[in-house]
Write a protein that binds this DNA or RNA. Structure first.
Lengths: 342, 342
DNA sequence: GTGAAAGCGCTAACAT
DNA sequence: ATGTTAGCGCTTTCAC
């Protein structure tokens, strides 16, 4: 296959609104009215304009419009990791609603980095985006909220209830509790937790749910059974499980706060020749698509990912439409889904 | 947790360049020069300006700058499915390079739909993005190329060699050939192909590689061993494998053109109580992260996903920097990675 | 119902 | 070295 040698044609000099006006023999104001489907233009005039638009292949320059109207019809979405299937699904939910309302989504992978997040937030201040949805750790949200409380943004999954920003998420404490309760019901007493970076609210809440549920059952928790990882990669889960199982007093059940982590755990257990769930049970969190595919199937807490994204987008749109409206925080339902692993 | 009632503060009336100029006692031109780090401003003057910028909390309105300079510093990325781990990795590669060069990435999920793709392409015409990277089926690229050949875009993974657009991809024919050759070397003669939508160039090329390699080995190919699926979901792979194995003369090896499909196949085989690779071998394509986690590990053809994305971004940037430059098509290396499944 | 004209915030000649 | 000014393409009063 020969390398392509692109024939670069100078870009068709963009035709502007005034060119259309001249061609149609009307004023730019009239063209503008037609383009914006405003009333007060007689049908014959409109037709003339439309004909010229077609003839010239006119495309409006939205940059100019944005400058004038001070709206860009872009929605910023900041996620810690686009590669994570969990976030990917949420993004799709956001995208669906945004498109329905004539908005484009500007997706930014922040790596949960505050500096990057701050630079993206500038897009809002610079009017390059009308609003933002933030999925980053609530700690970084908190750091930012001070200076950006007046900017139109909403929080998704992560949020600081003490900050006056609309949010959507789930009840992580209860979800974790459900997971642990299930393990308890199966007779497990030595239950480990693989938690992620506690800059995340969800991590802190799930840990608390784990702790409280164990305490309520009168089960002693061992600090060495709680391990924290810095990434949600499969490998991080594998590593954590290896550490856990290397202990003299190894757990018989592992609750990982993410399916990706849990899958890594399964991999470690296999490596260790442990049977799941007989030797050790494992339960994940999120219910990403792969959870149902592996063997054994992953028991997990399902989050309504698409709906989380859709709701976030709707909340933001609502806030944009009426800045004075009181848009509430909303908690969606989670669900324990039983498969083979626990 | 009580619902949040956001206190909506009116957005800080954006301070403009003229406000800064007034505050610093200089002209807007000078402020502009300082903001753009142009030479020809004395240090004391610069400092005065910078002080005012800080005092007023000035942020440049890039919309206005874009209107003036006719560049938005946004790169459009059109992918068929952001949720697919394969594309997600490529997007990260694009994002990395874009950010390095001061560009933001506008990510668009087209669902491989021509209409949606066309509407996104309009972003280019409207100067809301400076350039685009398209990962959609070459058939939809082809449909669009007629009218958009002069727009600054590049193709990634999918491309039409007959169209004068820079591209990056891999040699799909050879990659598929490598996969089939490996199966042949293992002694398999009844090798099935699960292929995806043939609107995709890669699908057609991989099928051809499969066909040619089998033919060269003197192995008869059976039409009923070639199945085409319309999605890359795990379920699609499962379904296809079930059909394949239901045949009287079932294959002993399955080559799926995507890891997600292959994982679905594994799931079907398990359901059918077939051992992998003893009863039937399976080989995938892409080498997404999960491929190494499952049991048995998935043998697959690795694509350099990050690098594919990075290269695409660089190609585009290159084209943007010098529209007259001849930017070549480039083919990256694939690699057969052996794990347990074949 | 339609047009003229004033900007939106910025950059880039062109002056000084 | 710094200032003046004319737009970029559009929307939007305000006239007519």
């Amino acid at each position: 296959m020969p390398p392509v040698v692109p024939a670069i044609v100078p870009a068709e000099s963009a035709v502007s609104i005034s060119a259309v006006a001249a061609h149609a023999g009307v004023s730019v104001a009239t063209v503008s009215r037609v383009m914006n489907e405003q009333s007060g233009v007689r049908a014959p005039t409109r037709d003339k304009v439309l004909a010229s638009v077609a003839a010239l292949g006119y495309r409006m320059n939205h940059l100019a419009r944005s400058l004038r109207t001070a709206e860009s019809r872009m929605l910023l979405t900041m996620v810690p990791d686009v590669g994570n299937p969990f976030y990917a699904q949420i993004v799709r939910g956001i995208d669906t609603v945004a498109r329905e309302h004539g908005y484009f989504v500007l997706l930014c992978d922040t790596g949960a980095d505050e500096g990057r997040e701050r630079s993206y937030f500038d897009l809002l201040r610079m009017h390059r985006a009308d609003g933002a949805i933030c999925l980053d750790p609530d700690t970084v949200q908190h750091a930012l909220s001070h200076e950006s409380i007046s900017l139109p943004w909403v929080a998704c999954c992560e949020f600081d209830p003490g900050v006056a920003v609309p949010y959507v998420g789930i009840d992580n404490h209860r979800a974790a509790s459900d997971a642990v309760a299930h393990l308890l019901a199966q007779g497990h007493r030595r239950i480990a937790l693989i938690n992620s970076d506690e800059r995340y609210l969800y991590a802190r809440q799930r840990r608390q749910g784990y702790l409280d549920t164990l305490a309520a059952a009168g089960v002693q928790v061992r600090p060495q059974w709680m391990v924290t990882v810095q990434s949600l990669d499969y490998e991080a889960g594998t590593q954590a499980a290896l550490e856990l199982m290397a202990q003299a007093d190894a757990p018989t059940a592992i609750f990982a706060v993410s399916d990706t982590l849990a899958i890594g755990v399964l991999s470690a257990l296999r490596q260790l020749q442990k049977r799941v769930p007989q030797d050790v049970a494992v339960i994940g969190f999120d219910d990403i698509a792969i959870a149902a595919q592996i063997d054994p199937g992953l028991t997990t807490i399902a989050q309504p990912m698409r709906e989380l994204g859709e709701t976030a987008a709707r909340l933001l749109l609502q806030r944009l439409a009426d800045p004075a409206a009181q848009v509430p925080g909303v908690l969606l339902q989670h669900q324990l889904v039983l498969r083979g692993s626990a």
